[in-house]
Amino acid sequence: MIFSVGILYSIQKFLYFISNSTIKATEFNNAFQRYEATSPQIILEVTENCNWIQLDKNGNLTTTVRGKEIIEQKDMTYALRVQLKHMIEMNKPSWSYLIHKGRKEAFQYFPSNVKQCFKEAELMNSYDKEVIKWWDVLALAVRGKQLDTQLEIGRTGEELTLEYERKRVNFEPKWQSIESNLSGFDILSVVSSEDSTPLRIEVKASANVSNIHTFYLTRNEWNVAEVSENYLFYLWVLSESPKLFILDTEEMYNHIPINNGNGSWENLKISFTLEELTNLNKKRNEF
């Protein structure tokens, strides 16, 4: 599959063209020696392979539902994002299976032409909600899954943490989980507005309507927490007015299992009542 900024932009122009014109594939091929930045033949091949075009009952070129999705975007950058998503979902190139590890982790293994497409689509440095959702949806699609509620709840907790940290320390924190999910924490902030020592934050969120709130912890997250000088767990209980509960590694330690014999834990489920979380926060504020 061809990943080229010039060709994908040319295809956008082509899709606009056939949506407003009546022309057959042979007529298009013969009418243009080149179309924008590429040849008519390449445009026809790529658009057909990606299911962006079809023939109507008279044999004229027309856009499919997927093709219409591209030309209905508000600008060429958004259209490029749709094109990339379609192409990756359909073809699942080998490098796409790294996307779930985070965009910076995956990007280093992208071919140079693919890197250029992602940069042009403004997918690498933006924390815009639509960009974050684009990465989440694609990461799951490549692995044959749908965007689930738990992932959306987790992202909400991370967004609330970013907002909370901006106000707390008057500093722009780094959204680490978007760049890499191998780091063992979600947000990189600082200890305080007067102390720029790094603070690693692992974010958990629960939207349970009951009094029991369950959070999941990986062994990698705990390993990083144990060796980090400053590491906190931000536990969000999501409701009309989200509540934040902050635990340090010492408070979390009581809930961590001990490996025995040849066994070792990899993932952990921890459940708290709202009263337990409230009491933990009160104890923290006493010191």
Score class of each variant (00 low, 15 high):
L188C: 05
N208V: 00
R200T: 02
V191C: 05
I178V: 10
D186N: 08
N211V: 11
K204H: 02
D186P: 10
V190R: 13
E202P: 04
S196E: 10
V209W: 06
V209H: 14
N181E: 14
E202Y: 01
E179L: 12
T197G: 11
S177R: 01
I187E: 04
V169R: 11
I187C: 07
S180A: 12
V169Q: 11
F185I: 04
G184P: 01
P173L: 05
E172A: 12
I212G: 00
L199K: 14
V203I: 09
T214N: 06
V169W: 07
E194F: 10
G184V: 01
I212L: 09
V191G: 03
V169A: 13
S193A: 13
S196V: 09
P173Q: 03
W175T: 00
E172Y: 06
S177Y: 00
S206N: 09
K174V: 08
P173M: 04
V190K: 12
W175M: 05
F185R: 06
I178T: 07
D195E: 12
N170R: 11
F171P: 02
F171V: 00
G184Q: 03
S183F: 10
I201A: 07
T214D: 07
N170M: 09
V209E: 15
S177A: 12
T197S: 15
N208A: 13
S210L: 04
E179G: 02
V190H: 04
F171W: 13
S180M: 08
K174E: 06
E194A: 09
S180L: 07
N208M: 06
A205F: 03
E202S: 08
S206V: 06
S210T: 11
N181H: 08
E202T: 03
S196H: 11
N170C: 10
R200K: 15
A207C: 10
R168M: 09
V191P: 04
S193N: 11
L182V: 01
R168V: 04
Q176M: 12
F171H: 13
S192V: 13
S196C: 12
V203D: 01
I178F: 06
S180C: 11
S192R: 15
I178G: 01
I201S: 02
L188N: 08
E179A: 08
S180I: 05
T214H: 05
V203G: 01
H213A: 07
S192Q: 15
S180K: 06
V203F: 03
F171A: 03
G184R: 02
N170S: 12
W175I: 00
V209M: 14
E194R: 10
V191K: 10
P198V: 03
S177V: 03
N208K: 08
G184L: 01
D186F: 04
L188Q: 15
N181P: 01
E179K: 12
N211P: 09
L182T: 02
W175L: 09
S183I: 12
E179S: 09
V191D: 05
W175N: 11
S180F: 01
I212P: 00
E179T: 02
P173A: 02
